[in-house]
Nucleic acid binder design. Structure first.
Length: 292
DNA sequence: GGTCATGGTGTAACATGTAG
DNA sequence: CTACATGTTACACCATGACC
C-alpha cells in the first residue's frame, strides 16, 4: 500500500529563498562571510558587498529602514550546512564543507551535489517541523529519493522525468527512502491508467524550490521552463557510482538522529557541515567520485 | 484577459540580550 | 529573576510577469 499522508500540509520545507541560488550568489555570500568569520555579522557589510552586483535583491526592510540582503539570504547558507545558523553561533562560523569550497578543494557543483544529496528530514535547521517529522516517522533524504525514483523509472523503461504534479502526488508522500519502489510503481500505474493519487496542494511551493535546488547538482536538471525534473548526462554516465553512493545514503545507520538533546541544532551543523568524513561521497565534475 | 509561478516583502513567533 | 527591548527565523502573503 502506498503511503498515506501522515499529517496535514505534508511538504518538504526549505527556505523559499533557495529558489534564487546559483553559483555567483552563493560564492558572493560565502566570500562575504569569510570576511567576517569569528565576528558577529554586520548586515550592512553584506548589503554593501552585494549592492549593484545584480545577484541578490537589496531586500529593503521598512521595519529597520535599510537594505538587508543578509536577513533573508543567509538562510540559504545555513539550510545547506555551509554556515552554522547564527541563532546557534553568534559569531559567524563557516563549516568545513564551506571551507573546502573556499580553499578550492570542491567546485560549486561538487559542493552542492554533496550537500544536497546528504540533506535529510528531519534535520536540525528547522525547529518545529523537525519534531513533527520525527514523531511521524519521517526519515528521508529527498535527493536520494528522487534519484532512486528517476533511476527506477529508467530501469522499468518508463520516461525518467518527473513533473511537479507527480512530485506533489507521489514523491512527497514517501516518508522513508525505502518507499521509492512503491513510488515508482504508483507513478507508472498513474501514467498508464487513471488510478491517480490526489495532489497535495500545500507542497507546491516547496517542491518547485526543491526542483531548482536539485538542478544545482551534477545529477539533476530541470526542463527549459522548470516544470519537470530529469537526469543529466553526467548522472547517466555515472549511474553505477551513484547507485552505490545512494545505497550508503539510504542506510539508516548513517542518518543524523534527532533527539531532544538541547544542543540538537548545534549537533546537526557539526554533522552536516563536516567535510573530511564525507569526502568519499564527493562526485567530481571531471567524472568519477572519490578522486582527489 | 485569466491562470499560474516566482521573487520580494511583511510579520508572527520565538530566542536572546539587558536593565533594573 | 523579571520585564521589556532587540534580533532572527520561518513562513504567509502579495505584486509582477510569463504563458497560455
Amino acid at each position: 500500500m502506498y503511503p498515506d499522508i501522515p499529517y496535514e500540509n505534508l511538504s518538504w520545507p526549505v527556505t523559499q529563498h533557495a529558489g534564487v541560488i546559483e553559483r555567483d550568489a552563493v560564492e558572493g555570500l560565502l566570500h562575504a562571510c569569510s570576511s567576517c568569520q569569528g565576528k558577529k555579522v554586520n548586515p550592512e557589510t553584506i548589503s554593501t558587498y552585494f549592492k549593484g552586483k545584480g545577484l541578490l535583491t537589496a531586500n529593503f526592510r521598512s521595519d529597520s529602514n535599510r537594505d538587508d540582503t543578509w536577513r533573508d539570504y543567509q538562510q540559504i547558507l545555513s539550510e545547506f550546512g555551509l554556515i552554522y545558523s547564527t541563532r546557534i553561533c553568534k559569531e559567524l562560523k563557516l563549516t568545513s564543507v564551506a571551507k573546502a569550497y573556499l580553499n578550492g578543494n570542491l567546485t560549486y557543483r561538487e559542493m552542492m551535489t554533496l550537500q544536497i544529496l546528504r540533506y535529510q528530514y528531519p534535520n536540525g535547521h528547522k525547529t518545529k517541523v523537525t519534531k513533527k517529522q520525527y514523531i511521524n516517522g519521517i526519515r528521508l533524504r529527498p535527493a536520494v529519493l528522487i534519484w532512486d525514483v528517476l533511476n527506477g523509472l529508467w530501469e522499468k523503461g518508463a520516461n525518467p522525468v518527473l513533473t511537479r504534479e507527480e512530485m506533489q502526488s507521489y514523491v512527497v508522500r514517501c516518508i522513508r527512502n525505502d518507499d521509492y519502489n512503491k513510488c515508482v510503481e504508483a507513478i507508472v500505474r498513474a501514467r498508464s491508467d487513471k488510478t491517480k493519487y490526489p495532489i497535495i496542494p500545500e507542497a507546491r511551493r516547496n517542491l518547485s524550490d526543491w526542483m531548482k535546488v536539485l538542478s544545482q547538482t551534477l545529477l539533476f536538471k530541470t526542463s527549459e521552463n522548470g516544470s519537470t525534473l530529469g537526469l543529466t548526462s553526467y548522472a547517466i554516465m555515472e549511474q553505477t557510482r551513484i547507485i552505490s553512493a545512494c545505497e550508503k545514503l539510504r542506510d539508516e545507520g548513517d542518518y543524523w538522529d534527532y533527539s531532544s538533546s538541547e544542543n540538537f541544532q548545534e549537533e546537526w551543523f557539526d554533522y552536516y557541515g563536516e567535510y573530511e568524513s564525507n569526502k568519499e561521497l564527493v562526485f567530481r565534475e571531471s567524472g568519477g567520485y572519490n578522486v582527489q
